[in-house]
Amino acid sequence: MTDISTSTYVPNLSSSAFSQFKGRTTGVGADGANADSQTFTVSKAGEYNFKINNSFTNVEIRNDRNEVVTSLRSNESTADASARLGPGTYTATFSQGNRAAGVRDYSMDVTEKQNILVTAGGASLKGTAQPPGNGDTGVQKHTFNVVQGGTFTADISLPNTRWAMMDKDGKVVAASDSSKPDAQQNFLQKPTYKLQPGQYTMVVVPPSDLKSPTDFRLGLVPRNPDLTESGTNQESAIQKTLRERQSRLQQWASQGTTKTSTKA
Rank of each mutant, 00 (worst) to 15 (best):
T119C: 06
G122W: 00
A81V: 12
M166E: 08
F216H: 06
I52V: 15
P222G: 10
P207M: 06
G170Y: 03
K263S: 14
V205W: 10
R104E: 15
R217M: 00
Q20N: 10
S82F: 11
L85M: 13
E67V: 14
G86D: 14
Q251P: 02
L13H: 05
M108P: 01
L249R: 15
N224D: 14
Q185E: 13
S157N: 05
T228V: 07
V69P: 01
E47L: 03
I4H: 03
M202L: 14
T151W: 06
S15H: 12
A120W: 00
Q250M: 13
K240F: 10
E112W: 06
V203S: 08
Y193D: 02
S124N: 12
F216S: 04
G150W: 03
Q130I: 15
G29E: 01
A35E: 02
V28C: 01
D31L: 03
L220V: 03
S71V: 08
I238G: 00
N53R: 14
A81Q: 12
Q234A: 10
V68K: 14
G149K: 00
S95P: 11
D209L: 09
S7H: 12
Q184K: 10
S208D: 15
Q250P: 01
Q196K: 12
P207R: 10
A129E: 02
T39D: 04
Q140L: 14
F21C: 05
I52S: 06
Y193N: 04
F21Y: 13
E244G: 11
M202F: 07
S37I: 10
R24V: 15
Y193T: 03
A120C: 04
S212Q: 12
E60I: 14
D109W: 08
A183I: 14
S74K: 07
G170D: 09
A183D: 06
V205E: 11
V147P: 00
R162H: 09
V172L: 03
S43M: 06
K22P: 01
D31E: 04
G121T: 12
